[in-house]
Simulated assay, not measured.
Amino acid sequence: MAFTNSSARGAELNVTPLIDILLVLLIIFMVITPPKTLGLSAALPQPGGDPPTNSPADRSVVIQLDGDSNLRINTEPIRLPDLGARLLDIFKTRAERVVFVQARADTEFQYVAQVVDIAKGASIDHVGLLTARLDDGR
């Protein structure tokens, strides 16, 4: 900080270096602050892999959702309010908590997001989305 002494005005403070320091600190804090992430995280299946086998040893859980918001876990029909409790019951003895959500093309996204939210609330680690293209082998 520099002081200048003029006989007419008295001591005057030079604030230019203070503004420079303030701007540098502002930039540093903007860079190191992590961005806020919004939305639902989901793992999408990658095309070109081997098709899944339908053996009895396959213990994958697929939540199927049609356009009328009817739910099924694999082949078992279930109501939306009972979904969280049923998922907790299914995964209470499993170490790997992975669920796939399959919805028809005419299903509104809010229903899919609600199912993913319920699955995350039931302590499911990974929620994957199944698409019709990958099911058809395209």
Rank of each mutant, 00 (worst) to 15 (best):
A2G: 09
N5G: 10
A8W: 00
R9L: 15
G10A: 06
A11F: 07
D20N: 08
I21W: 05
L22Y: 04
L23M: 10
I27F: 04
I32P: 05
P35V: 15
T37E: 10
G39Y: 05
A42W: 00
A42S: 13
L44H: 02
L44S: 05
P45W: 02
P45L: 15
P45G: 01
Q46F: 04
Q46A: 11
S55V: 15
P56T: 11
P56F: 05
R59C: 08
Q64F: 06
Q64S: 14
G67K: 12
N70M: 14
I73K: 01
I73E: 04
N74Q: 10
T75D: 13
P77R: 08
I78Y: 00
D82E: 14
L83W: 02
A85Q: 09
A85D: 11
L87N: 03
D89T: 11
I90G: 00
F91R: 05
K92C: 08
R94C: 07
R94V: 08
A95C: 04
A95T: 14
E96H: 00
R104W: 02
R104S: 14
A105V: 15
D106S: 11
E108P: 11
E108M: 10
F109W: 01
F109N: 09
F109T: 08
Q114G: 06
V115Y: 00
V116W: 02
D117V: 10
I118Q: 02
A119L: 09
A122G: 07
I124W: 01
D125V: 07
V127R: 01
G128Y: 01
L129N: 02
L129K: 02
T131K: 00
D135G: 07
D136I: 14
D136S: 07
D136M: 12
G137W: 01
G137D: 09
G137S: 06
